[in-house]
């Protein structure tokens, strides 16, 4: 898809993330905004999804489940539900739970929320497809703080052991977690070398908020060499909203009315 079309989608997704979190007065804007280009490029260009009930569809697992506003906003763009429903986010009886629930909302491929678990399920899906000779590719988005969880590395080991070259891990490397700089809280670095040592084919996207840069990174990965893939995408937490950018305090804080107006203005909404 052309970059300007993708950018238009990304802009709507960003606006919806802000609106959802504002409407719920809770949620996680920072890490939702950092992953927008990754999710939009996957859903609108990279992944093969003839329909969300097609057995051979590619799947996206949001292992960093707290970025649910990102997933919901993108699934809404894919036409799975009307935009009005986005504002039910985090409300009683909503299909849009605080963290994604695969049994409530069609299009959600895996229930996530407890960090470090989505990646293992994604590896299980890739293994299932591989052992059945099916064409599904499985994409999994992990946070850079999330990879402090030991289960992430158990899953990485298994992906490599079972030669899951149909599995692509993307690290949303925005550099910040709740308590601050990931390097200061509990450094996961060097992420690329660690993943390489675990048997992954790794590329770094120096700008993970740039479609060309992400596209180029994905293009470098060789599909059929028996190695799982990883992209370390260097992103900006809170990307697109000046006062949220690179500020850990927007990890799990909702903007108030004034801040929401300001954010939407910056995102080009009148």
């Amino acid at each position: 898809m052309e970059n300007d079309k993708l950018s238009a989608i990304a802009l709507r997704v960003r606006r919806n993330i802000i609106k959802m979190v504002n409407s719920a007065s809770s949620g996680h804007p920072g890490g939702s905004l950092s992953g927008v280009e990754i999710a939009v490029l996957l859903y609108f260009e990279i992944m093969n999804i003839p329909s969300f009930s097609d057995e051979n569809r590619d799947k996206f697992i949001l292992s960093k489940g707290h970025a649910s506003p990102l997933l919901y906003a993108v699934l809404c763009e894919k036409g799975l539900f009307p935009a009005e429903e986005l504002l039910s986010f985090r409300r009683l009886s909503s299909r849009l739970q605080g963290h994604p629930d695969m049994k409530k909302l069609p299009g959600v491929e895996m229930t996530t929320g407890s960090l470090g678990l989505g990646i293992g399920a994604a590896v299980g899906m890739a293994l299932s497809a591989k052992s059945d000779g099916k064409p599904n590719r499985i994409y999994c988005l992990c946070g850079d703080g999330e990879i402090q969880e030991g289960t992430v590395w158990e899953a990485a080991m298994a992906a490599s052991h079972y030669k899951l070259d149909n599995f692509t891990l993307i690290i949303d490397n925005n550099g910040l977690q709740i308590d601050g700089d990931v390097a200061k809280v509990m450094s996961p670095y060097p992420i690329d070398e660690k993943l390489r040592a675990f048997g992954f084919e790794v590329v770094t996207a120096e700008n993970g908020n740039c479609f060309d840069c992400l596209r180029e990174a994905i293009g470098k990965l060789n599909d059929k060499n028996g190695k799982p893939k990883a992209i370390v995408a260097k992103t900006v937490k809170g990307k697109g909203v000046s006062f949220m950018e690179n500020n850990a305090s927007w990890h799990g804080t909702a903007p108030n009315e004034e801040q929401t107006r300001q954010a939407l203005k910056e995102l080009g909404e009148n």
Binding site: G120, A121, T151, A155
Partner: peptide, 26 residues
Amino acid sequence: PERFFDCGIAEANMTSMAAGMAACGK
């Protein structure tokens, strides 16, 4: 042998992988 998967000494990940495989109909 083609339907048996040793997950090594990693019980949590074994359980996660099983969840993923169940989500695929296994």
